[in-house]
Design a protein around this nucleic acid. Structure first.
Lengths: 152, 152
DNA sequence: ATCATATAGTTAGATATCAAATCAAATAAT
DNA sequence: ATTATTTGATTTGATATCTAACTATATGAT
């Protein structure tokens, strides 16, 4: 495989990933209740599964989005009453994000909306083969994350 | 693996893909000349490699974006003089997209900007293992594309 | 102690994307 | 032929995301 070919196939890999992300995000967004985005669900889900009382920065880091993006997402979630963002007693610059009862209820609803789609995928696709991609993808993700802040 | 676990891991797969797409897109966008987005490059690249004179709809379909998105991208490219969008003599509703000399020049510049990043990845990562993901990802992409227009 | 630097979060502005609705042309049906 | 349906593209309006710049607090250096 020559160099140009190598580059083209790597680019193709990212193109496939881009398309999958687009289609999956669009699909999930369609299934979720009106006005709610999969990025909202992901944050709520994270707080429920791994515990709340985390800072916005920790959340931004967990999802690899920028700080303003997380500010925006948390504002949306706060407006809907799904999270409660309080001052961090240990650090005056910082805040802590707590999930509310309404937030937990939203998670249940969202899960009920998304599970049929996930289950259909599990039925229609070779799930073990798909999930076997996870380690490779995680490696790639870590690499990109690390390579991120080395310039130029 | 129980059902909930299966769902959680599938969702995790999409989360990884989402993060990779975010990081890769951001990285590529940083490398590209001012004001140009990787989605612009992808269209130009496609036209150069596989031939121009395609319709906006064909392009939208190739990248799995919606028609308005492709209209927007082509408007941007047209404004910069990278493509020429003409009426389709064979169909009054349709148009044909041609690449210009400036468009080809932009592609060369863009490739020169992106190749170092791609080459660094090829050096730092296990490229054969990465590229071996392509068939599985293509299968997943085709599945999502097909499942897209079945309701509800 | 004071001042410089680093860190957490927000604000401002830009843009890529989507869904829904619209318009125009082509095709199909009666 | 005329009308209805389908198809290609655009317009409109909303939103998620990014970068850059800003504010406020915390930490470190002299």
């Amino acid at each position: 495989m020559d160099l140009d070919d190598q580059r083209a196939r790597l680019f193709e890999l990212f193109n496939e990933i881009h398309i999958i992300q687009q289609l999956a995000t669009t699909e999930f967004n369609r299934r979720l209740p009106e006005g709610l985005h999969v990025s909202h669900f992901a944050v709520i889900n994270h707080l429920c599964r791994l515990g709340d009382g985390r800072t916005p920065l920790q959340l931004a880091s967990a999802f690899q989005v920028t700080k303003p993006t997380m500010t925006h997402t948390l504002t949306q979630l706060g407006t809907r009453g799904f999270v409660d963002v309080r001052a961090n007693p240990a650090d005056g610059r910082s805040k802590l994000v707590y999930i509310t009862a309404a937030g937990r209820a939203f998670r249940e609803t969202a899960i009920a909306s998304l599970n049929p789609t996930l289950d259909a995928m599990a039925d229609d696709l070779d799930l073990p083969a798909l999930l076997s991609l996870l380690p490779q993808l995680a490696t790639l993700r870590r690499y990109l994350d690390t390579a991120r802040d080395v310039g130029p």
